[in-house]
């Protein structure tokens, strides 16, 4: 029990073991025009964990995820206050290299979105643009990434066939492999299984379990069982506020806030 209490305190007061956080979000406010969508969010992401973000639709969890690789920059009229520290440096600070940030903080989307290219070219797309021309190295990267994404055995005989011929679940693993090919440190996942059937979903969940040995994963999910199955810690968002964050079993068994309890017991959302 002492261990559990320590973990909970660590989560609640953002005390991570020395040198163990990769992202520190501080007082993050986000506005779409005049409408505020995130209110003073403080959250740390620990190295090598799977952090699940849950909450009802429109609670800001996806918006929050997209601030972590600055993908909200694309949307007109978005304004951000506060800091997102990545190894101590604010990614919204002046002179930050957006390309390096997005390479090292990769993202997997809700709908599988392979490019209309071959399987091989989908994986090689990122490394090629980042300057790797050598065919042998590209071959290695493609094999390594597909193996890590548990797709290699299924596609090794048709690497040069179109990626659009794969099933939805295979496409989603391909997209994960494409992210791994540029060697990220953190992988953001925005409801990666919500467009998939149950079997494909469980394969992606298994994959996430394997990936966390090498990568830090922040995953938005609609599905509380999924969060419970795969994540180390869970953060609950509501109406743009981070209500509570705790180790997953703690959050689900003994939530501290009434809103969290109402949500996980199914009283709303």
């Amino acid at each position: 029990m002492a261990e559990l209490k320590e973990a909970r305190d660590a989560a609640r007061y953002h005390i991570a073991p020395e040198g163990k956080t990769v992202l520190n979000v501080r007082r993050l406010n986000l506005f779409y025009g005049k409408k505020q969508a995130l209110f003073g969010v403080d959250l740390d992401v620990y190295k090598g964990e799977v952090l699940a973000l849950i909450g009802p639709s429109g609670c800001g969890k996806s918006t929050f995820l997209r601030t972590l690789n600055r993908l909200n920059d694309l949307i007109d009229g978005v304004r951000i206050e506060g800091e997102v520290l990545w190894h101590g440096e604010n990614i919204y600070g002046e002179g930050q290299d957006l390309i390096e940030i997005r390479k090292r903080i990769g993202m997997v989307f809700q709908r599988p979105n392979p490019f209309p290219l071959s399987i091989y070219d989908n994986i090689a797309y990122g490394p090629r643009i980042h300057g790797i021309k050598d065919r042998k190295r590209l071959d290695e990267i493609v094999e390594r990434s597909l193996t890590q994404a548990a797709l290699w055995d299924e596609v090794k005989d048709r690497l040069h066939a179109s990626a659009l011929g794969l099933s939805g679940g295979q496409q989603q693993r391909l997209v994960i492999a494409r992210v791994l090919a540029v060697e990220p440190e953190i992988v953001l996942m925005d409801e990666p299984t919500s467009a998939l059937d149950p079997i494909s979903t469980s394969r992606i969940e298994e994959l996430i379990g394997m990936l966390k040995k090498r990568y830090t994963i922040v995953i938005v999910t609609h599905n509380m069982q999924q969060a419970a199955r795969i994540s180390d810690r869970t953060a609950f968002f509501l109406n743009g506020y981070l209500i509570e964050v705790a180790p997953t079993p703690v959050l689900f068994q003994t939530p501290q806030k009434k809103e969290t309890e109402d949500y996980i017991t199914g009283r709303f959302g």
């Binding site: 993908l71 694309l74 997005r102 993202m107 979105n113 990122g126 643009i129 494409r178 540029v182």
Partner: peptide
């Protein structure tokens, strides 16, 4: 589709290279 563009940008590919490729 917008998600094609986002996929490319999220891989750390610049806006211009995303347009051309």
């Amino acid at each position: 589709p917008r998600d094609q563009k986002e996929a490319s940008l999220a891989l750390g590919v610049s806006h211009w290279r995303t347009i051309t490729s």
